[in-house]
Structures are given as structure tokens and as C-alpha cells.
Amino acid sequence: MTKQNQVNLIKLSVGSESVDSLIAWQASRRARGPDGLPRHITRMWPKREAEILNGGSIYWVVKGVLQCRQRILRLDEVIGRDGIRRCAIVLDPEVIRTQSSLRRPFQGWRYLPVKDAPPDLPKGRESEETLPVELNRALAEIGVL
């Protein structure tokens, strides 16, 4: 498969105040699977599984701003206590910061085509503070970001 046959996911990181709080959550035992890798459990199994597993990432929206991504390693079946089949999106533990991009709230996850994904921040800029949401929004409105 080629990059043409690759797609990403985008998801709100509900409850996260920052990328650092997302990283801290994923370090907790509750966010990790039996293999020790972070995972996100969702009700729906992605129909575009092959494209996701062809190098796709999950892009995290924190406080209304897309700020980082993680490579998706695999999709595991998880049966809940209620007997319902769910999808565990198993993630690479490395969180890669991206250029910020404002996003409106949405439910669940969405597909994010490669061409629409923000670029990673260059090496050495990963620890930069993100812009305040209001400033980020103003810059986006005038076409700077």
C-alpha cells in the first residue's frame, strides 16, 4: 500500500487540559492494555482499517486545538463486561506534537485524510507552549496559521 491508501483518525481528548495531561493519562495503568501500550477504546470498529494500519495516526484535539498525534499500531477486539464488542486503538507511546489547528467539537472519531493533517513540529520545537486558544483563533481567521 502507498500513502494514497493511508488515512488518519482525529479524536477529541476529552478531559485533557494539555498535551502533557494526555501523556500523563496514557501513562496510567487504566489507559494501557495488557501489553503495556496506551490504547483508546471506542464502540465503533473503523471500516477503513487497512488504510489506518498503513501508517496512520490518531490526531488529538485538546481544548479545541489539534495539537499532537500518535501512530496507530493495531486495532484489537475488546469485549466489555456488558458483552459488547469494542475496538481498542493501540497506540505508539510516543506523542508527536504538530502544528496547532483549531477544531470544532464533534463526537466520536473522524477520518482525517493525509492531505488535511497538520505537519509535525520540527525537531527542537516540540516542547514549545501552544498559543492561547483566543490568539490561535484570531491568527487562523486572518490566515496566518
Results as ranks from 00 to 15, higher is better:
residue 60 W to Y: 15
residue 23 I to H: 03
residue 70 Q to T: 06
residue 14 V to L: 05
residue 85 R to Y: 08
residue 30 R to E: 12
residue 123 K to Y: 13
residue 90 V to R: 01
residue 135 L to T: 12
residue 80 G to S: 13
residue 46 P to H: 08
residue 78 V to P: 00
residue 144 V to K: 06
residue 44 M to Y: 08
residue 144 V to F: 09
residue 68 C to G: 08
residue 24 A to G: 12
residue 138 A to W: 15
residue 40 H to G: 09
residue 19 V to M: 09
residue 17 E to T: 09
residue 69 R to W: 11
residue 125 R to C: 14
residue 118 P to L: 06
residue 132 P to V: 00
residue 43 R to N: 14
residue 113 P to C: 06
residue 51 E to H: 04
residue 31 A to H: 02
residue 74 R to G: 04
residue 52 I to D: 00
residue 17 E to I: 07
residue 32 R to P: 12
residue 50 A to D: 10
residue 8 N to F: 00
residue 139 L to N: 01
residue 105 P to Q: 13
residue 125 R to D: 13
residue 64 G to H: 08
residue 118 P to W: 12
residue 107 Q to T: 11
residue 111 Y to T: 14
residue 2 T to G: 13
residue 79 I to P: 01
residue 54 N to I: 02
residue 7 V to L: 11
residue 68 C to I: 04
residue 54 N to C: 01
residue 92 D to L: 05
residue 54 N to H: 05
residue 9 L to M: 08
residue 58 I to L: 01
residue 65 V to N: 14
residue 66 L to Q: 13
residue 113 P to G: 09
residue 73 L to M: 03
residue 1 M to P: 00
residue 16 S to Q: 08
residue 71 R to L: 05
residue 140 A to D: 02
residue 117 A to Q: 12
residue 60 W to C: 07
residue 73 L to H: 07
residue 30 R to T: 09
residue 136 N to W: 06
residue 80 G to K: 14
residue 91 L to I: 06
residue 98 T to C: 13
residue 145 L to Q: 00
residue 26 Q to V: 14
residue 27 A to S: 07
residue 131 L to E: 09
residue 142 I to P: 02
residue 123 K to C: 04
residue 2 T to W: 01
residue 84 I to D: 11
residue 25 W to G: 10
residue 18 S to W: 08
residue 7 V to Q: 07
residue 52 I to A: 00
residue 6 Q to C: 15
residue 104 R to T: 11
residue 51 E to L: 06
residue 86 R to F: 11
residue 2 T to E: 10
residue 34 P to C: 11
residue 8 N to A: 07
residue 85 R to N: 10
residue 77 E to Q: 14
residue 107 Q to D: 07
residue 8 N to E: 00
residue 21 S to T: 15
residue 81 R to V: 15
residue 37 L to R: 09
residue 18 S to C: 04
residue 116 D to T: 08
residue 46 P to G: 02
residue 29 R to A: 15
residue 142 I to V: 13
residue 71 R to Q: 09
residue 96 I to K: 06
residue 55 G to H: 10
residue 130 T to K: 14
residue 49 E to D: 14
residue 76 D to L: 03
residue 92 D to H: 10
